[in-house]
């Protein structure tokens, strides 16, 4: 490589920082959707690179389903405090009460679908015109189709058949009142890119990403953490296993993987060796139908 050629991680980093600054330049009231997972933690790290020594031109916003891992919540609060940025938390629980929403029933009743209601209410409450999220195109086939600046109508809906052309690195963020844009700065990163970057930049993560002992329920080849949010039946097989989380979503719909990975290097080795995709291995919410993600996005989900 010549002196003036960038390594792929530097290329991805620069592309993401550029996207962050476009959001700052084009929108009045952006927000960074922060979940406490590795992708949104990487977003925060990139935002620090984009805006320091200035403040972020947006708050961190967490839509709390009430089913989060306590480790991720503690990490969220600690990170927000450490970087001195504003954190807004809105709870799905409150939306359920206020709007009399019907919760899913069953063994792994998930609030995944309901969080869209809280998200849209929060967007309206603060008048957010752009919401930055950590979705990646390699995660899922509907996400592979979405633009970096994805315009949503006033119901938050994505219209996959009518996306704006997006050329070069020119992002068109012009919208009408009531519409908002979802912005995905790490669209072009893969799971492995994220881990390599976390290693290179020495980014800290919640402990659930590393191997630990946990009481889990084995269900259709998935290991689900025992928690107050799932229904445990008499014949369920519960055991204590050494596991880690490959993704961190709700405790009700995120499966752990058996793992002995105690360091970032161990995790990278496991990911290189794995023959299963990130969401396929860990998200039971995507298994509903072939178009589960597309359908949720059309309804305002990320």
């Amino acid at each position: 490589m010549s002196q003036y050629q960038l390594d792929y991680l530097d290329q991805l980093e620069s592309e993401s920082i550029h996207i962050f600054r476009e959001v700052a330049g084009q929108f009045e009231k952006p927000a960074l959707l922060f979940s406490g997972g590795k992708d949104s933690i990487t977003l925060v790290h990139l935002a620090l690179k984009a805006f320091r020594p200035g403040k972020f031109p947006f708050p961190l916003v967490h839509i709390d389903t009430g089913h989060n891992f306590p480790e991720a919540l503690a990490f969220r609060d600690q990170l927000a405090e450490q970087i001195g940025e504003k954190l807004i938390v809105r709870k799905v629980e409150d939306t359920i009460k206020a709007k009399h929403l019907t919760e899913q029933k069953g063994k792994f009743a998930s609030r995944n679908q309901l969080q869209t209601f809280t998200l849209l209410d929060t967007i309206e409450e603060f008048g957010f015109d752009a919401c930055i999220g950590g979705a990646r195109r390699d995660e899922e086939k509907a996400r592979a189709k979405e633009r970096i600046f994805s315009v949503r109508d006033d119901f938050g809906q994505w219209n996959p058949k009518l996306q704006r052309p997006e050329l070069w690195h020119t992002y068109n963020g012009k919208i009408h009142k009531g519409e908002n844009v979802r912005v995905f700065p790490i669209s072009n990163w893969t799971e492995l890119d994220i881990w390599n970057y976390i290693k290179r930049e020495n980014i800290q993560l919640p402990s659930v990403y590393f191997s630990h002992e946990r009481e889990v329920l084995e269900y259709q080849n998935a290991l689900i953490a025992v928690s107050p949010y799932i229904q445990i039946d008499e014949n369920d097989k519960i055991s204590t296993r050494r596991v880690r989380y490959r993704t961190v979503g709700d405790m009700t719909c995120t499966a752990a993987v058996a793992s002995e990975a105690y360091s970032i290097d161990d995790i990278i080795s496991e990911i290189i060796a794995t023959r299963t995709s990130e969401r396929g291995e860990t998200r039971i919410d995507d298994r509903f139908s072939e178009a589960a993600m597309e359908d949720r996005k059309k309804n305002g989900y990320f």
Partner: peptide, 22 residues
Amino acid sequence: LLTDGLRAEREQGITIDVAYKY
């Protein structure tokens, strides 16, 4: 079917929008 990620694409067996693969 690996890249035709939208319902409408799979139904019609065509590609409507660009899909990115890594």
